[in-house]
Amino acid sequence: MARISIENVSVDFPLYHGSARSLKKTVLAAASGRLGEDQRQRVVVEALRNIEIHLQTGDRLGLIGTNGAGKTTLLRTIAGIYEPVHGRVLVEGGLNALLDPQLGMNMDLTGRENIMLRGLYNGYSKQQIRLLEQDVQDFAELGEFLDLPVRFYSSGMVVRLGFGLATAIRPEVLLMDEWFMAGDASFVAKAHTRLESIVRGADILVLSSHITSAVLQWCTRVIWMDHGRIKMDGNAQDVIDCYLGTPALAPALA
């Protein structure tokens, strides 16, 4: 049984710019007694505010909202990358977060080396890493490029490698950002079955996307994020209708 429980989670981003990044200036400010004032005036972006979400096996949640609404930050918080300022994030089940195409790939390393690192991260044995390599190679069709540094790849090849690698690993909890829906038509067609199989295989899906048709296709429940808060939460069709309709008049249920 997989479970996600997000209890009253808030995330703040400190904006360090200019002198806040400098030790010398921070020390000077402290010496002249300005530190207290400085701390109170520190610019903070309220990325998430009082988010409460509970998901169980079988749940397919879509996150929609404009740029900067906090969708990606919420995914990163569920993935445990950003630890919340307040609240608690509990995820039971093996988790795989498909957040950006490069997914921390090192562009100077070869495709094969990047695959090996991902396998090691997941605690795979040598044998399993070879399987992973084979699986990704079959999908991405990189040929001899597999042994060349990723920086020599075309952008299409990088996407194929990143996608193939990320989708080779079947998790119980799958977090996905919208770039996974992007790509040229032929790629999308090829990727679709592969994506479908890991989505179906996952106990819980959380998908963040601008593309409402994709959300409607994959998700049963949708949360509309706005300025780091939950603006609306409910049945996929209802929420998307409100979102696409007249956002200004939509009822604020959060």
Binding site: V91, G93, E172
Partner: peptide
């Protein structure tokens, strides 16, 4: 490949 399973992430 094994499915990723039996992990718990608890961040407070």
């Amino acid at each position: 490949l094994p499915r990723l399973s039996h992990a718990t992430l608890d961040v407070r």
